[in-house]
Structures are given as structure tokens and as C-alpha cells.
Simulated assay, not measured.
Amino acid sequence: MSKRHMKCLAGITVTTATALGLAAAPTAASGQRDLVVHPGESIQSAVDAAQPGDTVMVLAGTYRESVLITKPGLTLRGAGERTVITPAAAQAPKATKATKGAEEAKAAHACATGGNGVCVIGTKGNTVDDVRIRSLTVSGFDKSGIWASWTDGLSVRRVTAGENGTWGIAQERSTRGDFRNNTATGNGDAGIFVANSVSEEGGATDTGGTLVVDNSVSGNRIGVTARRVRNLVIDGNTLTGNCSGVFVVGDESKPAAGAMTISGNRIVENNKFCPATPRLTAIQGSGIVLTGSEATVVRSNVIRDNVGSTPLSGGILLFKSFVGALNTDNTISRNLVQGNKPADLADRDTSGTGNTFVSNTCGTSVPAGMCAG
């Protein structure tokens, strides 16, 4: 880039920053900018001013707002756990500035009115691609800490999502998500939730290889839920103190849920009790539950001391889905499954076909004889 070009770009950047009360500077060579948000300033204003490829850097502090991202290629980066996004105090809505159209004003409030903290939202014909969320805390929202719909390549890392009413980090109708090194604790439903759609029935979505990797998930209703989705990896996570560790939900629609890998996770003492809901029986002491799944591989997990007395209790459990879908062609192999009650391994889907249990180290199984030692 020429010096003249850089000088011109810098002038534009400073003008934008001055108008917003933000600090911004171009990064080397690329022309992409860092927009810095200080305590007391608006994250949403910086997101609105950003262009694809820019980074919104949020300094340590508490920010009482919801943030909606509808542009591709943005990075929202905090300063670690000290950057906290929490709900705004209740107040009467302010008049929209004349410089904003009615449609923009409505969109700007979509995340907040939905009860979510940070939202990345596209549409069926126009997904929002390659957004990155890094190193911040999102807590106390009525619905989700982070909510994504119609996205591709969303990456969420080193985020703490806690004490949200439904989900900590959630994605629907999306592909190629990457969720790793996050902490999700004390959320009302799943700590991490991946689904085809939350508003309608239908066959499982191929997530294109979504990754849920190396997260710490505790004290939620369910640690990780994969609902009516295919083609994803749940690997290397630590799940403890939830009512259930990993829950795969399928139904009778086609394509069926499954074709996923659940491996290398540490799933210990998920013994919190969660009462029944209109969709699901009570849960307690569940390690990994497959309902209506096909061709899923469950291997090399450590699953210990998950204890309960509900129909879904146990270490690794195959259970016919509550809408009648069967488990088919799933492989459970080389897992260390011990101290779980009422059983370490349980195949309670007696009508399912092609399910195999191979080389699992465990003490008890239903039916008997499925443990290697």
C-alpha cells in the first residue's frame, strides 16, 4: 500500500472514529481496521460502523446491551473474562435518529428483544459468514448468551457464557461452526446447543462439520445438545455437574440425526436433577444419550459416576426417541465407562438395529454382556 493511500485511509478512519467517539486505526497492509470500544461506549455503534474484515475490540468493563452482527467477516474481541456483556437496564425505548431507517432500527433491537446477548443473524438466502467472537463474557440474558441463525463459519473461542435463561452458546440453521475453549455454566437448558431449527420440525441439517471442541461445560440442564443435526464433532470437552452430559436428539423426519463423532470427552458426575418438561422426561445422571440417531460414533470417552434413577440415567444410553425414531447403525467403542448407575452401558432401544458395543471398559450393562472388562 502506498504512503498516500495509507494517509487517505487513516483520515477516513479518524473521521469515522470521531463521529462515534471510538478509537480506530487501520491494520498493517490489509486496510482492515480495529475499532476500540471503551467502557461507557456502545459496542453496537462500533459494529454498525465496521466493515467486513474489521475487528471490534472491546476493552475490559461491563457493557449493558445486546449486540447484533449481520455483516460477514467481523471479529468481536474482548479482553478476556473482564469484558462482560450483560442485559441493559429496563427503560423506555428512545426515538430513532433520523439518520437510521426504520428497517435498520428494527434490526438493531432484534437481538435484545429476543432476550439474547450477542447475535449473529443472516437469512436463508444470505447467510452471515466467517464471524469470529473471542475472549469475553456474556451472562444474565433471558434466552441465550450467544445466538446464531443462518451463519456459515461462525467461530466462538474463549467465551464464558453463564447464567443465561436457555442456552449459553447456540446455533441453528447454520454450517461449519467452530466452538472451542469456551466455558458454559449455569444456563437454563444446554451450555452449547446445535440444532436444525428451534421454530419448526423437519429433517436433520448437515452442519458441514461443525466442531464443539475443548470446552468446559458445567451446571447446565444439558452440557451439549445436538438436535436434529448431522455431520459434526463433539471432542475433548469436559462436562460435569449437568443433568446430562451429551444429548443427541433425533426424530422420524429424513434425513435422520446422526453421522457425528463424540470422542475424547471427559463426562463425570452429571448428577444434577432436572424435572420433566413437555418434551422430555426428567433427567439426572446421564452421560451420553442417543435418541433417534444413526451412524454416530461414540469412542474413547471417559464417563464416570453419572448416577440417577430416571429413564435416561446411565453412562452411555441408547433410547428410542420420544416421537418414535429408532437408533440405527451407531458404534460405541473403546470407552472407559465406570461407576454409572443404573448401568454403565444401556441399550434401551430394543427395536433399533445395527447398533454395536465394542471394546468398552465397564462394570455393568443392560442387557448384560456388553462390557469388555
Rank of each mutant, 00 (worst) to 15 (best):
T70C: 00
A46S: 06
C111H: 00
G162R: 15
G117M: 01
E172P: 00
Q51K: 13
N164G: 02
V56W: 06
V84S: 01
L154V: 07
I121T: 12
T62A: 13
A79V: 07
R158D: 10
A95D: 11
I85E: 00
G31S: 06
E163K: 11
G125I: 11
V118G: 03
F141T: 03
Q171M: 15
W147Y: 15
A92H: 12
A50M: 11
D48P: 02
V128E: 06
G117S: 04
I121Q: 01
I169F: 05
Y63L: 02
A95Y: 06
R33Y: 06
T160V: 12
A170P: 01
S155N: 13
K143T: 13
Q32L: 13
V120Y: 01
G153Q: 07
K124G: 12
E163V: 08
S135W: 10
N164R: 02
V56K: 05
I85T: 04
T151H: 04
P93C: 08
S144M: 02
T113I: 12
D48W: 02
A110F: 00
T137E: 04
Q32C: 11
G162K: 15
V138M: 06
G78E: 12
P72Q: 10
K100Y: 12
K124H: 14
Y63M: 05
A98F: 08
E104H: 01
T86A: 05
G125N: 14
D130P: 07
C111L: 00
A108I: 07
V67L: 02
P72I: 02
R158N: 09
G101R: 09
G165E: 02
A46I: 04
D54G: 04
G153W: 07
V131W: 01
G80A: 12
I69S: 05
D34W: 14
K71Y: 01
N126W: 12
G125Q: 14
P39N: 09
D54I: 07
S45P: 03
L76T: 13
F141N: 00
A102D: 14
M57F: 15
